[in-house]
Simulated scan of single mutants.
Amino acid sequence: MKFKLNQLLKKYKIVAFNFVDVGAMDALEYIYELDAVTCIVGFEPNKNEAYKLYKKYNRVPFQSFVLETDCLSDKQEEVEFNIMKHASMSSLLDIDFANYKKNFGQYKEFDSWEKNVKIEEKIKVKSITIDDYFKEHTFIDFLKLDTQGSELKILKGASKLIAERRIAIIKVEVSTIPIYKDQAVFSDVDLFLREQGYVLVDFLTYRAIYNPLFGKSQNRNSHYAPCGDAIYILNTEYLNESSKIRSAIMLNWLGYISLAKHIISKTILTLDEQNYILNYNFKSLKKMFKQFLINICPPIVLYYFKKILF
Rank of each mutant, 00 (worst) to 15 (best):
M288I: 05
N252P: 05
F214H: 11
R207C: 12
P298S: 11
F139A: 07
F104R: 11
K156P: 05
T147R: 01
A24Y: 02
L204S: 15
K52V: 07
I300T: 05
F214V: 14
K102C: 06
K75C: 15
P299H: 08
A208S: 14
A36L: 04
L5W: 01
A260E: 03
E273C: 07
F139K: 11
D70Y: 10
L145R: 04
A16F: 00
D26H: 09
T270F: 02
Q183W: 09
L200P: 15
D96H: 13
N46F: 00
L293Y: 00
F282Y: 10
Y32V: 05
S150Y: 02
K75F: 10
H223G: 13
N275W: 02
D202R: 09
D190L: 09
M1E: 05
K118T: 06
G215C: 06
I177P: 04
L302A: 03
A98V: 11
V15N: 14
S175F: 06
D96C: 06
A225W: 06
D182T: 12
D70V: 13
D146H: 10
V20T: 03
T38Q: 00
E151F: 12
S64T: 08
G157A: 06
F3E: 01
E121C: 01
A225Q: 04
K10P: 01
D190T: 07
D202F: 03
Y224I: 06
L145I: 04
S159N: 15
M25V: 10
G149Y: 08
I264Y: 00
K283R: 12
